[in-house]
């Protein structure tokens, strides 16, 4: 949470997981606070609050960002995808299913961020090598250190050969 002496408000209009959202918000609200507290989308996690860990990763206009480092007002006009928007109805995405199949999840806290970083990586480089996968998820920390299974799951899609 950022603290401001003045409570200023601004209207923003964003598309979150395909739905239009128009809201009057406090200008110093971070995108992370907006998603979690105003929209009840709690998939993005707050851990380090300084961009080191990637647990708050969301996709903003086709790019992954740390939602703790973006003001919600900056997202005005943007399209946001959170982990809640990755599966369609009850159907997991291919990558989510791969995380299940490869037992990639331990405590689970980093997984929303990992999945979103992985989804965008697959979109941008559909044939990403192991090295490219490691580089692509290097902004996401898994404190259980379960990287191998996570990388295997992403590679099962990009390296299916």
């Amino acid at each position: 949470m950022l603290v401001s002496e003045n409570q200023d408000f601004q209207n923003i209009s964003v598309i979150v997981n395909g739905q239009n959202v128009d809201k009057k918000i406090r200008t110093h609200l971070r995108l992370l606070d907006f998603l979690r507290n105003e929209l009840n989308l709690t998939g993005a996690k707050e851990v380090c609050a300084e961009g080191e860990c990637g647990a708050c990763t969301v996709i903003m206009d086709g790019k992954i960002v740390n939602s703790c480092l973006v003001l919600a007002v900056e997202a005005d006009g943007a399209e946001i995808t959170t982990i809640e928007g990755v599966s369609k109805a009850d159907q997991l995405s291919k990558l989510q299913q791969a995380f299940v199949d490869y037992h990639s999840v331990q405590c689970g806290y980093c997984i929303p961020g990992m999945i979103l970083a992985g989804e965008q990586l697959i979109k941008d480089s559909p044939e990403a090598s192991i090295e490219e996968i490691k580089y692509g998820i290097s902004g996401n920390i898994c404190r259980c250190t379960g990287y191998t299974k996570i990388i295997d799951a992403v590679a099962s899609i990009t390296q299916k050969g």
Binding site: L2, A49, E50, G51, N66, L69
Partner: peptide, 22 residues
């Protein structure tokens, strides 16, 4: 601009400025 240096600084207890220009 990007906010990647400024937001952590505000997060660490520095008070937000009266106004910012993006």
């Amino acid at each position: 601009a990007g906010g990647t240096d400024l937001i952590p600084r505000y997060e660490r207890g520095e008070i937000l400025p009266q106004s910012i220009i993006d």
